[in-house]
Amino acid sequence: MSIRVIVADDQEIVRTGLRMILNAQPGIDVVGEAADGRRAVELAQRERPDVCLFDIRMPGMDGIEATRVLAGPAVEAPLAVVVITTFDLDEYVYAALKAGARGFLLKDAGPDLLAQAVHAAADGEALIAPSITARLLRAFADAAPAPATVQPIDALTDREEQILAAVARGRTNSEIARELHITLSTVKTHITSLMVKLGVRNRVDIAIWAYETKRVGNRFGTR
């Protein structure tokens, strides 16, 4: 079955371009568009798409708040949201990830990367633009206040530490499996264990936790 996507951006030319690119990809079908955040939320709640692709800056309700409404911590059945932005150090991207976004891309991402992000989000993974993954998360983690709890509920195993670092660098499950020479199911098991131990809901939150607590920078030399 095709992955059902809705697109929200206040610029019609951008929406048209995204729709044409996505509809040209096998297995992806754009089922709706919106020009502002409020309409995007209404459309998403009505259509229940597999993936929402939202611009960050939109009138009425921006992409951050729209993401929080559809995918935030208080949402019982969160939708998969991928945010898309113009600048590689946009101050709103970090907030969007904290609001529940499953990943983000730059607007100059090519068709292949855009399709990969949609497929990853639909599969429960996340794709963050490779060119800015570590740099952007580190930048905002440095500026963000330390979380109330900086240690995991239970100590991480050595393998979990390795996977934590890989997730923080934007690696997909398949890439982690190849790099660590383990099976895909083993990676998924460790990802689930990390979410439980860190008290987070998805792999983006895992990456944010790693940078907020300086765990990746201190231990794996990414600074």
Rank of each mutant, 00 (worst) to 15 (best):
M1F: 05
I3K: 04
I3L: 15
V5H: 03
D9R: 01
E12T: 14
R19M: 14
N23A: 10
N23K: 03
A24E: 12
Q25S: 15
I28C: 03
V30L: 08
V30C: 09
G32M: 04
G32E: 05
G32D: 07
R39N: 15
V41D: 09
E42A: 14
E42F: 00
A44Q: 00
R46W: 04
E47P: 00
D50V: 05
D50M: 04
V51P: 06
L53S: 07
F54H: 02
D55V: 10
D55C: 07
R57S: 15
G60R: 01
D62N: 13
D62V: 10
I64E: 09
E65A: 13
V69A: 13
L70W: 03
L70N: 05
P73E: 14
P73F: 01
A74K: 05
V75L: 07
E76N: 08
L79W: 03
V81K: 03
I84E: 02
T85N: 06
T85S: 15
T86Q: 11
T86E: 13
D88N: 10
D88V: 08
L89E: 14
D90I: 12
E91F: 01
Y92Q: 11
Y92G: 15
Y94T: 09
Y94H: 10
A96F: 03
A96R: 00
K98F: 04
A99G: 10
A101L: 11
A101F: 07
R102K: 13
R102A: 14
G103W: 04
F104D: 11
F104S: 07
L105I: 07
L106A: 10
D108I: 14
D108G: 06
G110E: 12
G110W: 00
P111C: 10
D112Y: 00
L113G: 05
Q116C: 10
V118Q: 04
H119Q: 14
A120F: 03
A120C: 09
A121M: 08
A121I: 06
A122T: 06
A122R: 02
A126Q: 01
L127G: 02
I128K: 01
I128M: 13
A129M: 04
A129Y: 00
P130H: 02
P130Y: 03
S131I: 14
T133Y: 01
T133I: 01
A134G: 05
R135H: 12
R135V: 15
L136A: 07
L137N: 00
A139E: 13
A143R: 09
A143N: 06
A148G: 10
A148M: 11
A148R: 08
Q151T: 15
Q151I: 14
P152S: 09
D154E: 14
T157Q: 09
R159D: 15
E160P: 02
E160T: 09
E161Y: 00
L164V: 09
V167N: 04
V167L: 15
G170M: 08
R171P: 03
S174L: 12
E175D: 12
A177D: 11
L184C: 03
T186V: 13
K188G: 11
T189V: 14
H190F: 08
I191Q: 10
T192L: 11
T192E: 13
S193I: 09
L194A: 09
K197E: 13
L198I: 14
G199C: 11
V200R: 02
R201L: 13
R201N: 13
N202K: 02
I206E: 06
A207E: 12
W209Q: 08
E212Y: 00
E212Q: 12
R215P: 01
G217Y: 00
G217D: 12
N218T: 04
R223M: 11
